Amino acid sequence: GATAVSEWTEYKTADGKTYYYNNRTLESTWEKPQELK
């Protein structure tokens, strides 16, 4: 079936920290989303 993983994109900030952005909800988070675990 369809999965929600594709909504999240992993980015890195200029200082090398990783964060996650959800293209559907426009939410961003420092925590790894449940969908990616």
Results as ranks from 00 to 15, higher is better:
residue 29 T to F: 07
residue 12 K to S: 07
residue 31 E to Y: 07
residue 24 R to G: 04
residue 17 K to W: 05
residue 37 K to R: 13
residue 28 S to A: 12
residue 26 L to P: 01
residue 18 T to A: 05
residue 25 T to E: 02
residue 21 Y to I: 12
residue 13 T to F: 04
residue 14 A to V: 11
residue 5 V to N: 11
residue 4 A to M: 12
residue 26 L to H: 15
residue 25 T to P: 01
residue 34 Q to W: 12
residue 1 G to V: 13
residue 33 P to W: 03
residue 3 T to Q: 13
residue 31 E to K: 05
residue 15 D to Q: 07
residue 4 A to P: 12
residue 36 L to N: 07
residue 11 Y to C: 15
residue 35 E to H: 06
residue 21 Y to A: 03
residue 22 N to F: 01
residue 22 N to H: 02
residue 5 V to G: 12
residue 13 T to G: 08
residue 28 S to W: 15
residue 31 E to T: 10
residue 16 G to Y: 01
residue 3 T to H: 13
residue 35 E to P: 05
residue 22 N to Y: 01
residue 20 Y to P: 00
residue 18 T to V: 11
residue 18 T to R: 05
residue 18 T to G: 02
residue 9 T to S: 11
residue 15 D to W: 06
residue 8 W to R: 00
residue 33 P to R: 02
residue 33 P to N: 03
residue 12 K to H: 09
residue 27 E to Q: 10
residue 26 L to K: 15
residue 7 E to L: 05
residue 29 T to L: 06
residue 29 T to N: 03
residue 28 S to Y: 15
residue 4 A to H: 13
residue 36 L to D: 07
residue 12 K to Y: 09
residue 6 S to P: 11
residue 6 S to R: 08
residue 16 G to T: 00
residue 6 S to A: 11
residue 27 E to K: 07
residue 2 A to V: 13
residue 27 E to H: 04
residue 37 K to E: 14
residue 5 V to W: 14
residue 18 T to Y: 08
residue 31 E to D: 10
residue 20 Y to S: 00
residue 16 G to M: 02
residue 21 Y to E: 03
residue 16 G to I: 00
residue 20 Y to F: 06
residue 35 E to N: 08
residue 20 Y to L: 01
residue 2 A to G: 13
residue 13 T to H: 04
residue 25 T to S: 03
residue 16 G to S: 02
residue 37 K to S: 15
residue 1 G to H: 14
residue 17 K to P: 01
residue 23 N to M: 10
residue 35 E to I: 06
residue 10 E to D: 02
residue 24 R to Q: 09
residue 18 T to E: 03
residue 29 T to C: 07
residue 26 L to V: 02
residue 18 T to W: 04
residue 27 E to D: 04
residue 22 N to L: 01
residue 34 Q to Y: 10
residue 2 A to W: 10
residue 22 N to A: 00
residue 1 G to E: 12
residue 24 R to I: 15
residue 36 L to P: 05
residue 32 K to Y: 05
residue 2 A to R: 09
residue 24 R to T: 10
residue 23 N to G: 05
residue 17 K to V: 09
residue 9 T to A: 10
residue 25 T to Q: 01
residue 23 N to D: 05
residue 13 T to E: 03
residue 6 S to I: 08
residue 15 D to P: 01
residue 36 L to F: 12
residue 24 R to N: 09
residue 14 A to Y: 04
residue 7 E to P: 06
residue 29 T to W: 04
residue 8 W to V: 01
residue 36 L to W: 08
residue 36 L to S: 07
residue 10 E to T: 09
residue 26 L to M: 14
residue 37 K to I: 15
residue 24 R to H: 09
residue 10 E to A: 09
residue 8 W to S: 00
residue 3 T to N: 12
residue 33 P to L: 02
